[in-house]
Every structure is written in structure tokens, then in C-alpha cells.
């Protein structure tokens, strides 16, 4: 589902239309382009809630936000890659999986 600016502002506590537009301008949130303005999906809205927490509750400055977002996004990317790697390992035959696991353990605790 997608929601327009007005709906999102009404929905997310503490959010103003000015906040929302400035965050979109900064590229912190990247909504879809609709015919009469932006449209936000659930991922965008969860990100807006996170930005509200960071900006309002934690009073983190606008200069610092890109640093934090980029670290969070990188971490999610790493986790995604680990999930995919895990899937690739899971699909291997039992003996190969064990071998990988043992080798991994020995690297982890030399």
C-alpha cells in the first residue's frame, strides 16, 4: 500500500509536513513519485518514524543524520548478504557444510 503526504503526516505522531518535505529533499526518505506528489510505502513510513525518534527524541542534529542512516543502511546490507551467504551454505551437502563450519570456528578462535 502507498500513502500520500497528508495521510503520512496525519498518521505519524509528531511529524509535520515541513519535516517530511525537508527529509525527502535531503534524500533521507525516497518515496515513489505520484501524479500529484510523493507516495510513501510501509518501508518509507518506518524510516520516517525512525527519523522522528532520532531528530525529536534524541535531538540528533541534521548534520549527523546522514552518518547514522548510512551506518544503519550498511549494517542492513551486511545482514542481507550474510543471510544470502547462509542460504548458499545451507543448500550445500552435509559434509561440505560441516567442513565450512569447522574452518569458520578455527578462524574465529585461533
Amino acid at each position: 500500500m502507498s500513502y500520500d503526504e497528508r495521510t503520512v503526516v496525519a498518521w505519524v505522531e509528531r511529524l509535520t509536513i515541513r519535516d517530511l518535505r525537508s527529509w525527502v529533499r535531503e534524500g533521507w526518505v525516497r518515496p515513489a513519485q505520484g501524479e500529484d506528489g510523493p507516495f510513501f510505502d510501509e518501508l518509507d513510513i518506518a524510516r520516517i518514524r525512525l527519523l522522528c525518534d532520532l531528530r525529536k527524541d534524541m535531538a540528533i542534529s541534521g548534520d549527523t543524520i546522514p552518518v547514522i542512516l548510512s551506518l544503519i543502511d550498511r549494517l542492513h546490507k551486511s545482514q542481507r548478504e550474510l543471510r544470502m551467504l547462509r542460504q548458499a551454505v545451507d543448500e550445500q551437502p552435509e559434509d561440505l557444510r560441516l567442513e565450512l563450519l569447522n574452518r569458520y570456528e578455527s578462524i574465529r578462535k585461533p
Binding site: D41, L50, D73, Q79, R80
Partner: peptide, 17 residues
């Protein structure tokens, strides 16, 4: 629901580097 609850769903890569 926190942001991280959405990040393993399909389509969530778009915010990642």
C-alpha cells in the same frame, strides 16, 4: 514496528548502499 522489522522484506534493498 521498527524500521528494522521491514528491512528483510523484498524491496528493502533500495535504501542500502
Amino acid at each position: 514496528q521498527f524500521y528494522r522489522d521491514y528491512t528483510s522484506r523484498p524491496g528493502a534493498e533500495r535504501y542500502e548502499p
